[in-house]
Design a protein around this nucleic acid. Structure first.
Lengths: 209, 209
DNA sequence: CCGGATCCGGGTTGATACTG
DNA sequence: CAGTATCAACCCGGATCCGG
């Protein structure tokens, strides 16, 4: 293991998670929970398969992740974060908040995965009236379906569809993300091609207007 | 510039600051303010000089740092963070907090610089009675002199000496840091070689006992 | 299909020496 | 003081292959 050799908490943290791809692997495991190798590879477009295998070994050695053999009906290997690994969430949040302004430029030839939405959703959205019954918003973006739903005061995003969503959003990644991080108003997002079905009450409730 | 090619705030942040050494250079500039090239090199033991030059160029291009020519009496080049660069402070704090447990093992052949103390000081210490007159604590560690002082509710550390400190601490880096992050009590630190001169009132005020 | 291992070319890093 | 120049070693990315 290459190390900075400095007796400093930041340097020691970077000794463990400072390698290329490592924090992005942790992002995937944080956002999606237990993952198969193939799911990870799909959520990390651009990674070389040998690097993914190497990093997973490193993470296992550092006790940030663990592999578990799923029981017979599934019969596959799953990777999940340990508690120590999950404690990196504040680091990823800080990085994501700092990097949010870099999302303004429209991407060209950049990959996108719908479940990445969970990061800005958790960072920027709050349920302002948690006492009322939960709402769910279906978001269709980049050919992926993601559900944004309230859960005891916080807001979560997960891959999948909602049976009876309070609202449905469809649009390009920069528009949806701009809306979620507050850079675009609902009107501006609509002007940029966002399609909204259902009531806007559910959106207002998350601070989107 | 090598990029992950992902339309994700974390990936884009890492595109900019994810290279080896980059965040440590920002640590130095955050902790010490405007720095000369040589000061940076000294605060980053282990870095190769060409890498430092490369990274400073990259930081300048990314508008995270700027170089300024000091006026004639000094006649040297200074590097300082831009506002955008300084906004990385929460990232470094999160990394430092996560890495703090890794500081327990005593270091062997690891470098240490006194001004690195500023990071745990700012993260872990609070002035519990900010209305009373400010206090200053001189810390002698690793042949460097650092002053820890209160300033309107927060606690700062800076290189240098205090003219008339309320207390003086002398000890090995792991002991001083253990004391500051709360892993060691004052008694435990003393048992591990910490020398304390002056009253412990100033220490209690920062939550050290 | 899943979970990698292996190989190879090129780019990056690190150590040292040197310079205006 | 503030870097360049040089070169070896290592790491990364892409492609291919392989056992369940």
């Amino acid at each position: 293991m290459r190390t900075y050799g400095q007796y400093c908490a930041v340097a020691k943290a970077l000794d463990v998670v400072g390698d290329r791809w490592t924090l992005l692997i942790i992002r995937e495991l944080l956002l999606r929970g237990a993952c198969r190798y193939t799911d990870l590879r799909d959520g990390l477009p651009g990674i070389a398969t040998n690097l993914l295998a190497d990093r997973l070994r490193d993470l296992e050695e550092a006790a940030l992740a663990a592999r578990e053999e799923a029981p017979p009906p599934i019969a596959t290997t799953l990777f999940r974060l340990t508690e120590r690994g999950a404690q990196l969430a504040p680091v990823l949040k800080a990085l994501g908040a700092w990097g949010a302004p870099l999302m303004e430029k429209a991407q060209r030839d950049e990959e996108f995965r719908g479940h990445w939405l969970a990061l800005p959703v958790a960072t920027y959205l709050r349920d302002h009236t948690p006492d009322r019954p939960p709402v769910s918003i279906q978001v269709n973006v980049a050919d992926e379906a993601v559900v944004v739903e309230t859960a005891d005061g916080t807001v979560r995003a997960r891959p999948g569809t909602a049976p009876d969503p309070d609202a449905t959003l469809t649009g390009a990644p920069p528009v949806v993300i701009g809306l979620f991080v507050g850079r675009l108003s609902l009107a501006q997002a609509r002007a940029r091609g966002l399609r909204v079905e259902g009531g806007v009450g559910a959106l207002r409730r998350l601070g989107i207007s």
